[in-house]
Amino acid sequence: MISISIETGLLLSGILFLLGLIGLLVRRNIIFMLMSVEIMLNAAGLAFVIGGSRWAQPDGQVMFIFILTMAAAEVSVGLALILLLYHRFKTVDADAASKMRG
């Protein structure tokens, strides 16, 4: 319905992805890291949809559905793990779980 160039869309997607990346590298709280990963996934999905829209095919949207599914599964398991980690270390510091044995 609108006409944009694909470069603009991909640029937007890229910026969102990089913002998620910065968040992942900077934040020490596990929950925020997980949120940053969600941002990155969303940005990747946006890129797919833009590509699919450019070629007027449903393939981009199909890919986004798969990404969505995967994100849901990952978040559920990840949050369960975060709860377990909190029970174990009594903190949400990601660096707390850095002791490697041996």
């Binding site: 020490r28 660096d95 490697m100």
Partner: peptide, 14 residues
């Protein structure tokens, strides 16, 4: 380089 810290490894990936 083997710190065990997640963000450190993420930096490596980047």
């Amino acid at each position: 380089t083997q710190t065990g810290r997640l963000r450190w490894y993420a930096v490596g990936i980047v």
